[in-house]
Amino acid sequence: MSDKFRQVDRETQFLLPPSLDDWLPEEHLARFVIDIVEQLDLSENELPRSKLRGIEKH
């Protein structure tokens, strides 16, 4: 095969691991960001359903 093409392993089921836990190191910044976002109180940013009527969705 030409050196312009990569070999394909047809037995590979996923390009990335199904779980980020298998992929990211324990001290990765993404894990820190996820922990901080989970602690945030985002309820103030949510509109009640009654106020959503009439708002055009984009």
Rank of each mutant, 00 (worst) to 15 (best):
V33W: 04
W23M: 14
S43C: 02
F5W: 04
Q13K: 15
P25S: 11
A30Q: 07
H28V: 01
Q13H: 05
F32R: 14
F14D: 10
S19Q: 09
G54Q: 07
Q39A: 13
S50A: 12
D9K: 09
R31V: 03
R53I: 02
F14T: 07
Q39I: 00
V33D: 03
L42W: 08
F14S: 08
I36Y: 09
I55W: 05
L15W: 09
P18V: 08
K57I: 14
E44C: 03
P25W: 02
K4V: 00
D9H: 09
S43L: 04
L16W: 10
P17V: 00
R6T: 00
R49G: 02
E46M: 10
T12V: 14
F14V: 01
L47W: 14
Q39H: 04
V33Q: 08
Q7R: 13
L47P: 01
K51Q: 14
R10F: 08
E46Y: 04
Q39L: 11
E46R: 14
Q7E: 09
V8W: 03
F32I: 05
M1E: 09
F14G: 01
V37C: 11
D41P: 02
E44N: 11
D9L: 07
F14P: 00
K4H: 04
P17E: 10
E56V: 12
Q39D: 10
K57G: 01
S43F: 01
H28G: 03
D9R: 12
E38G: 06
R49Q: 12
V8I: 15
S19A: 08
H28N: 14
E44R: 14
I55N: 06
M1L: 11
K57L: 12
P25A: 05
F32V: 10
P48G: 05
L15R: 14
R49K: 13
R6E: 11
L29G: 00
T12K: 15
S2K: 11
I36A: 06
E27Y: 02
V33S: 01
S50E: 15
D3T: 10
L42V: 13
K51G: 00
P17N: 07
V33R: 09
S19K: 13
L29S: 04
E44H: 12
N45I: 03
F5D: 08
L24Y: 14
D3Q: 06
F5S: 07
L29Q: 10
S2N: 15
T12H: 02
L16F: 15
Q13R: 15
L52C: 15
K57Q: 11
M1H: 07
M1C: 07
T12R: 15
Q7L: 10
P18G: 02
K51V: 04
L42T: 13
E38M: 10
E26G: 01
V8N: 04
R31E: 01
R31M: 03
W23G: 01
K4C: 02
P17Q: 07
R6Y: 06
W23E: 14
P48L: 09
R6L: 11
